[in-house]
Nucleic acid binder design. Sequence first.
DNA 1: GATGAATGAGGCTTCATTCAT
DNA 2: TATGAATGAAGCCTCATTCAT
Lengths: 196, 196, 196, 196
Amino acid sequence: MAIQKSAKKRERILQAAIQTFSVNGYSNTTIKGVAEKAGVSFGTVFTYFENKENLFKASVLEPLEEVKAVMLTVPEPSDDPTKQIQEVIAKQFRFFAQQTTYARMLQYVIGQPERFQELFIELDQFSIQLREALRPLIVKGQEQGVLMEIEPNDISDSYLAFINGARLTFTDSADNEKAWDMFMRQAYLLFGPKLI
Amino acid sequence: MAIQKSAKKRERILQAAIQTFSVNGYSNTTIKGVAEKAGVSFGTVFTYFENKENLFKASVLEPLEEVKAVMLTVPEPSDDPTKQIQEVIAKQFRFFAQQTTYARMLQYVIGQPERFQELFIELDQFSIQLREALRPLIVKGQEQGVLMEIEPNDISDSYLAFINGARLTFTDSADNEKAWDMFMRQAYLLFGPKLI
Amino acid sequence: MAIQKSAKKRERILQAAIQTFSVNGYSNTTIKGVAEKAGVSFGTVFTYFENKENLFKASVLEPLEEVKAVMLTVPEPSDDPTKQIQEVIAKQFRFFAQQTTYARMLQYVIGQPERFQELFIELDQFSIQLREALRPLIVKGQEQGVLMEIEPNDISDSYLAFINGARLTFTDSADNEKAWDMFMRQAYLLFGPKLI
Amino acid sequence: MAIQKSAKKRERILQAAIQTFSVNGYSNTTIKGVAEKAGVSFGTVFTYFENKENLFKASVLEPLEEVKAVMLTVPEPSDDPTKQIQEVIAKQFRFFAQQTTYARMLQYVIGQPERFQELFIELDQFSIQLREALRPLIVKGQEQGVLMEIEPNDISDSYLAFINGARLTFTDSADNEKAWDMFMRQAYLLFGPKLI
DNA sequence: GATGAATGAGGCTTCATTCAT
DNA sequence: TATGAATGAAGCCTCATTCAT
């Protein structure tokens, strides 16, 4: 029995890298630091990741799939799109509230598009996918007359900006539920509800 | 005379530093690079700034005063707080739309609070000051019944998050006026207008 | 059976090592590279050679036996030493013309005697052995009056230098027969023929 | 007064580099070692040479000019080309006899043409230039009937090979005058003298 | 005040060697 | 015997900082 199954070790390194990158940024993160946090030797990091840049890319891209799953999985519109939207908002904010670490990595990359061009482009696809995911619910709400007639893309884009902004601004207490509840309520306003 | 010349040189260096820091981040910025962009010699940077860290701090803090002036200068409530709020939003978004470079520095610092603790604390004061600046207008709007009864601090906080989020997410075209107009309209929704 | 299989594997590794060392030199050659070229796994190299240095020594010394066989096998003087000498020259140059790869290794070692002291000493024996091998033919030729009275050792030494020099200088086209024919004719001049 | 004039320091580093490269080869030479031998700090090497590769190139190419001056400066043919040729040979062998160190670098590069392609090409020009330099003397000797009718280019090429070979093979005692005298005499044989 | 050469600490990366399977 | 993951020493290079001019 191997002391440590490869995949597990790789995962440990990746998690350590995400932690460290998100706190220190790219250049200020050292492989040595990641290795120590992961509990492996310095050289072992290079057994699993070709170089620092690749480790960073993996740290950004691999967890992205989960984020996409949460952010882009939106139910078919039902009779009560208002409630559905609020539930989607709640799910997404709760998720982001927990993703302090990883969210920072995303913001770090988004904030330096020239430097991390390749990753940036990948992340930029996201807003378009979110538009498509949210549109049916928004359209339904507007048809039912419970939402104002705002261009759905504008709603999606501003909603995404808001999540990011909330996540960025509100670092102090990732667990502060009240604050996140507040942000959720405010987020809903961006969808243009006619009554609250 | 000499003093004035110096002051200009210092300013050139500072501007070059802001440009470079905001594109490359802290570690990836070199004094040599800043000196070249500023058109001064390498050693001269150290004539005006003790070390790299101080140059960074100055790059973050000195322009902050102008930002504060724009963000915290809010008129006394008049009969038409709705219009006033919209004007404040417009002024602030227009300002931020132009501040691509510097805004990134702020987000860079906010996004790494442990690393730039001192600066972060300074920036964190901001949200409290913004709360105070906006409250009178919000309260007036709520008294007049044109705004929903939302806790004013929540509005300020989410508004600030939204500006940051918009600025962060929307990098492609700082000059795209339509997008910024859209963001302004959406920002106003966060204030809880009863009708639009 | 197992032993024979192993022997083949060892040989494959050795040939791959010679190829790689001769192109890249010692430090720039990696065990990984040798293993790949040999079609064996990385660790297997260490099954057959204790460490890199030993692999290098084997790469230099083992093929040396064949070189010695060719270079030191000289016929007993007959009535026509001129023809014999020319045949020896032809045989040796043809051999060296093909040994592009290995010849380089020899030159690499000879060129860095301090670094590869042990190997260098081994190779240095060679010139003495060559002296002894060639002397009878040279003496016979001088006795017959077809060669000038040059100290036989000087002829051997300069002849050896010339082969090495030709092999070193003439890398472009190991197969260029004309060039090698020319070198052979010139080599014969070093023996001091009275007429051509 | 500067402690050390720049140009001097650069030269010290270059000389130290040539010494070290020629003994250890490229990969086995460390910048640290060069710096120590040159009596400068590690970082200073990079003040004068962008990187290790450039230092190596400079170590090969810069002294090449002197070599060219010695090797390609050949007098106009006079009435006694035999004597002239012997003088040229003497001059060139004496020079090479002293250039133990640098000559090794040349051989090191020539011996690994794929690895040091750019330098190799530069050095390869040399044989063509030598052909042109020697041709007039050879032709004159042949016209006078003191040299056999050998293609002049073949003589030049084999002569160059012989110098290299002698320099390569004969490392033990660069100062051994007798040996070098012998090599000179043998070298002359390559020109095809009809009588000695 | 302005300059840039000198310095060396620190980081990434390579790679020989070990060793458990 | 064959394998390749784990390790860490060592090298190149960058760059902030110092300091002499």
